[in-house]
Simulated scan of single mutants.
Amino acid sequence: MKIAVTYDNGTVYQHFGHTKQFKIYTVEDNKVVSSETVDTGDSGHGALAGFLAARDVSIVICGNMGAGAQNALTEAGIQFFGGVAGNTDDRVQEYLEGRLCYQPNISCSHHGGHGGSCGGHHEGSCGGHEHCHH
C-alpha cells in the first residue's frame, strides 16, 4: 500500500491543489518500509489524481481540497483524509494505528478567499467536528 501526504518542509501542506510535493510512504504489514519525496511538477488540482494513481497511491492525507480534486481522487479509487495538519511522519503513523484525526467534510474555496476554510490546524487530537480513522 502507498500513502501520499501533501508535503511542505516536513509538514502537511494545507491546499491539495497547490502542493509542490508529496511524501509517498510504502507500507507493508502496517509498517512504513520506505518513503520518498516527489515533486508534482506542473500538475494541479484534478491532474494530481492521475499523478498519484500512476504511482500506485491508494490513500491521501492532506489539508484541504476543492470538490473537483475530491471527485478526481474518488474516480481514481484513491481514499483521502483531509483537514489534517502537523508532521507528515506522525500523521502517517497515526493513520496506521487507526487514530488519525481528520475532517470528513473538507472544502477549500480559494476563489472566494481563504476565510479560514483552508487549514483548520490541529495537532493530532480529535475534538469538535473531527473524526478519527479506525
Rank of each mutant, 00 (worst) to 15 (best):
residue 6 T to N: 05
residue 6 T to P: 05
residue 7 Y to W: 12
residue 7 Y to I: 08
residue 9 N to P: 00
residue 9 N to D: 14
residue 11 T to D: 14
residue 11 T to A: 13
residue 12 V to R: 04
residue 13 Y to K: 01
residue 14 Q to E: 11
residue 14 Q to T: 10
residue 14 Q to M: 12
residue 15 H to W: 10
residue 16 F to V: 07
residue 17 G to Y: 09
residue 18 H to T: 06
residue 20 K to F: 09
residue 21 Q to C: 04
residue 22 F to M: 08
residue 22 F to E: 03
residue 24 I to K: 13
residue 25 Y to G: 02
residue 25 Y to H: 03
residue 26 T to M: 02
residue 26 T to N: 13
residue 26 T to E: 15
residue 27 V to D: 00
residue 27 V to L: 08
residue 30 N to S: 14
residue 30 N to W: 00
residue 30 N to P: 07
residue 31 K to T: 11
residue 31 K to R: 13
residue 31 K to F: 00
residue 32 V to F: 04
residue 32 V to P: 07
residue 33 V to M: 06
residue 33 V to E: 01
residue 33 V to S: 08
residue 33 V to Q: 08
residue 34 S to K: 12
residue 35 S to A: 14
residue 37 T to W: 04
residue 37 T to K: 14
residue 37 T to C: 11
residue 39 D to L: 06
residue 40 T to A: 09
residue 40 T to N: 09
residue 43 S to F: 05
residue 43 S to I: 00
residue 43 S to R: 09
residue 44 G to M: 05
residue 44 G to H: 14
residue 44 G to A: 14
residue 44 G to L: 02
residue 46 G to T: 14
residue 46 G to L: 12
residue 46 G to K: 13
residue 46 G to H: 05
residue 46 G to P: 10
residue 48 L to R: 08
residue 49 A to D: 06
residue 49 A to M: 03
residue 49 A to P: 02
residue 49 A to C: 05
residue 50 G to P: 03
residue 51 F to D: 05
residue 52 L to A: 08
residue 52 L to P: 02
residue 52 L to Q: 08
residue 53 A to C: 01
residue 53 A to P: 02
residue 54 A to W: 00
residue 54 A to K: 10
residue 54 A to T: 06
residue 55 R to I: 09
residue 56 D to P: 05
residue 56 D to K: 15
residue 56 D to L: 02
residue 57 V to H: 11
residue 59 I to K: 12
